[in-house]
């Protein structure tokens, strides 16, 4: 039986792991290759590495980092951050990344999803969507949550699927950093609306929150950062706990 997936997310700036709390404050949580390998060994099912570098100079560090990550970890991983063309993606996949995630550039130029999907296959294109509820409407934001757009979460996710995205990574900005649980209502709606897998992101604080994301939110995978980085929840314990709650986990 296909398992649900637990995905630690590592934000990278200039080759180092960082995590933005509510997209503003940043704390250092170590070396990305070592942290990634540790998570893989602990039973993480996938990893996401997000480059939040501001300058092109820092971005160059990221490309060589991807190869170093691929050399040392034996589970699939997604890379993202600043991807805006087919030319950006090819070297990342060639370096050993399994998937790429796109966000702001796809909002600006939705055709990018079609182009990437055609060039590399839907299975390696993750459409990341950051959204927050404004006047009762889930509104898509770009640039790490700074800019509100006129796109709505559900229509944008559906359009993304139709254009060839292979997965949706939905981050609720209202939940991110709160540790009060995932956005289960919109997650469940996304599940019912889409045929592609949905990754829940934003709000993980306890092991029970993961049960809710999988059962109430019907998510295919759940992503978290700081609770893993600072050891508040340990992946082997989380997976063992979910397994006892009849959520299928890889327990190799």
């Amino acid at each position: 039986m296909l398992t649900k997936r637990i995905i630690p997310c590592l934000d990278i700036k200039d080759g180092r792991t960082v995590k933005g709390i509510n997209f503003v404050n940043i704390r250092d949580a170590g070396d990305p290759v070592e942290l990634g390998a540790t998570y893989a060994q602990q039973g993480a099912d996938e990893l996401v590495f997000l480059d939040i570098s501001a300058t092109n100079e820092q971005r160059k560090t990221f490309a060589s980092l991807v190869k170093d990550i691929a050399r040392h970890i034996n589970i699939p991983f997604t890379v993202g951050g600043g991807i805006s063309s087919v030319a950006d993606v090819a070297p990342l996949l060639e370096a050993g990344a399994d998937k790429v995630s796109i966000n702001s550039a796809a909002v600006r130029n939705p055709n990018l999803i079609d182009e990437l999907s055609k060039a590399f296959g839907a299975q390696c294109i993750v459409l990341a969507i950051d959204a927050r509820k404004i006047d009762n409407t889930w509104t898509v934001h770009t640039h790490g949550g700074k800019n509100a757009t006129d796109k709505k979460l559900f229509t944008w996710a559906k359009e993304g699927q139709e254009r060839g995205a292979g997965e949706i990574l939905f981050t609720s900005m209202d939940h991110d950093g709160t540790k009060a649980g995932f956005a289960n209502d919109p997650l469940s709606k996304l599940h019912d609306l889409l045929q592609i897998p949905v990754i829940a992101s934003g709000g993980a604080g306890t092991k029970e929150h993961f049960i809710d994301a999988f059962i109430l939110g019907k998510a295919d995978a759940a992503l978290a950062a700081s609770i893993f980085h600072f050891g508040e929840i340990k992946i082997p314990e989380l997976k063992a706990f979910l397994n006892t709650k009849n959520i299928t986990m890889r327990m190799n």
Binding site: M1, L2, D45, A122, Q123, G166, Q195, P197, R250
Partner: peptide
């Protein structure tokens, strides 16, 4: 051919 909640592609960990 997709069936029930089972999506295509088959992506992830399976036994």
């Amino acid at each position: 051919v997709p069936k029930d909640d089972l999506k295509v592609p088959h992506m992830g960990w399976n036994n």
